[in-house]
Design a protein around this nucleic acid. Structure first.
Length: 561
RNA sequence: GCGCCCGUAGCUCAGUGGAUAGAGCGUCUGCCUCCGGAGCAGAAGGUCGUAGGUUCGAAUCCUAUCGGGCGCACCA
């Protein structure tokens, strides 16, 4: 016997509707019959295991009342195997209750599917390029970048769980004037001079400068401080960027985030990719010359103004690199190009969508830009001001030092990216139950403890009788477990990893309640029964889903805490 | 001025048209003689910024308005 899934209920409801139309009970036009009937978990337990509002939605079209339609559907649906009863409630909701055996069967399914439980095929065959972080190698990754590291990496995992082939990509900006500023700042610091007015400050500049000197000397080169200015600056640029980038990569790695591709902006300019991309847009008739510059007519595709791609001095404008980069990703075979950006770059969306359209692609599909709001750090109730130039930045390393990888990732990924979040450093630093990550991890550790204890007391998995799982906390826990695949699918579709985190908190809550109300191992000298053995399966199933979910967030699932 | 995001409990935040709006933290009351108390059971705490509109039904959709964040270069 298979567990009754919401999909099966949806199909059964649709079949009931079709039958009602076929025998003339329901006067519904054929094209008004929905493809799928939405089935959801009701908020209140007394409203059954599943509920649907389909009668409310179709009654008017069928020229009947919601309650009459609901009554008819209820009579038909109750014959479905595994359905214990169907009630009509309120204005015409259908409340469906499953019998315990049908609901409990899910525990075996989950245990058998293991790490595959929750995975889906919705994005199967889609090649996705997901670009995130892409911080300039002019300083450590600051807290905003860390948010995208946590969210982006989780999103990649979730998209993969949905069947997509995902490449994590980091755009390594080693071309522009900011790199020059960085190099001049290093040189000035190395020579004991004041930082350039538009340069970078902070301890890390001194550290990098010293490291560059040491590297050069160790390699047998001249001390770069003694070279002519231009040569010296070039040494500090090349070695400094390499150093800085190495540190960024290492910090991200320690945060559990690794990229498949590090793409250098320089490569676009050196390979002629920029010229080719512009030539292609010119052929398509979207390029024009004005005031000595070369423009792309992005207004044709909804942008609020046209954009210069080649400046009147002959240099490529910044956007030229992005145009070429987008084309490059598409030519590498990616169906969906997803870019995660901070809110300070949202002005960028309109023009890039126009670029996408100018290439003949579909904005919102071939190019998707996810905008995430900023992170504010709070300490003692006061906002912590951050400035890269002043060197007062909270870096990825700082965050990990203070709160650890799990708590850091979890705190950043449990909120919607649409929301500005305030992180209280003092609160995070206290590794107590004040952080919900521990609530979830503790639930997992508890499943492991129950497992160990069951083994000691001779509770085996020899029997599984789901009809015995009748306690109210058991049907509640099974109800949460059954939603996991839908949560993952929705998180993937909406590109919202926080849904997985919130789900895990809900699951942990249902598990803790179950744990407090029932026993897997017998009390005292009671005998081991099939109920104990069956509950051990439920414990296994919960453990599996907690582990699978935490895995999607890049957070560890400890056996002990 | 124009554009994007947000406004929900004391705090941090969930809730992409459904039934009595939720969680964690904080506060209060119970619960360690047995699977881990980083837990459980319960209580208090809300005009969902405001005003209209659409709908059988709105925190959710539309319009206006107020407040906060972030943007509006031949900078990158």
């Amino acid at each position: 016997m298979a567990p009754v899934t919401p999909t099966e209920l949806s199909d059964a409801l649709r079949a009931a509707l079709a039958a009602a139309v076929a025998d003339g009970t329901l006067a519904l036009p054929a094209d008004a019959l929905p493809d799928t009937v939405h089935v959801e978990r009701p908020r209140q337990r007394e409203h059954g295991d599943w509920a649907t509002n389909v009668a409310l939605q179709l009654a008017k079209k069928a020229r009947t009342t919601p309650r009459a339609l609901a009554e008819d559907l209820a009579a038909r649906l109750v014959a479905t195997p595994g359905v214990a009863k169907v009630d009509v409630a309120g204005p015409g909701f259908l409340n469906i209750t499953l019998d315990a055996a049908a609901a409990g069967e899910l525990a075996r399914t989950i245990v058998e599917e293991g790490t595959a439980y929750g995975r889906g095929e919705a994005e199967a065959g889609t090649r996705i390029n997901l670009e995130f972080v892409s911080a300039n190698p002019t300083g450590p990754v600051h807290i905003g970048g860390v948010r995208w590291a946590a969210v982006g990496d989780s999103l990649a995992r979730i998209l993969q769980a949905s069947g997509a082939e995902v490449t994590r990509e980091y755009y390594f900006n080693d071309h522009g004037v900011q790199i020059d500023r960085f190099a001049r700042s290093l040189l000035a610091k190395a020579r004991g001079q004041a930082a350039p007015e538009d340069g970078y400050g902070g301890q890390y500049i001194e550290d990098i400068a010293n490291a560059v000197i040491a590297d050069a000397v160790a390699a047998g080169d001249t001390d770069p401080r003694e070279l002519p200015d231009a040569d010296a600056q070039e040494v500090f640029r090349a070695r400094g960027v390499e150093r800085m980038f190495g540190e960024i990569k290492q910090a991200l790695h320690e945060f559990g985030v690794d990229f498949d591709v590090y793409f250098h902006e320089d490569a676009l300019h050196e390979s002629g990719a920029v010229d080719r991309a512009i030539a292609r847009l010119r052929e398509a008739g979207h390029v024009f010359e004005q005031d000595g510059a070369t423009w792309l007519r992005t207004t044709e595709f909804g942008d609020d103004k046209d954009r210069v791609v080649i400046k009147s001095d002959g240099d490529a404008a910044y956007i030229a690199g992005d145009i070429a980069y987008y084309l490059d990703k598409r030519e590498r075979g990616f169906d969906d190009v997803i870019i995660m950006l901070g809110a300070d770059h949202h002005g960028y969306v309109g023009r890039m969508m126009a670029v996408c359209a100018a290439f003949g692609d579909t904005p919102g599909k071939n190019l998707q830009i996810l905008i995430g709001q900023m992170v504010n750090l709070v300490k003692d109730g006061e906002p912590v001001r951050m400035s890269k130039r002043a060197g007062t930045i909270i870096t990825l390393e700082d965050l990990v030092d203070v709160v650890g990888v799990d708590a850091g990732r979890y705190a950043l990924v449990r909120s919607s990216s649409d929301t500005n979040i305030d992180l209280d450093l003092d609160l995070l630093a206290r590794a107590t139950n004040e952080n919900p990550v521990f609530y979830v991890q503790y639930a997992h550790a508890r499943t492991a403890a129950v497992d160990r204890n069951a083994a000691e007391h001779g509770v085996t998995r020899d029997a599984f009788d789901p009809a015995l799982l009748t306690h109210e906390t058991e049907s509640a826990l099974l109800g949460v477990l059954t939603e996991f695949p839908r949560v993952v699918a929705q998180a993937a579709e909406l590109r919202e990893p926080h849904r997985v985190a919130r789900y895990l908190e809900q699951l942990a809550g249902a598990y803790h309640s179950w744990y407090a109300a029932t026993r897997v191992t017998p009390l005292g000298d009671e005998e081991v029964t099939d109920l104990h053995r069956t509950r051990l399966w439920l414990n296994d199933a919960t453990r599996q889903v907690l582990a699978n979910g935490l895995g999607l967030l890049g957070v560890s699932a400890p056996e002990r805490m």
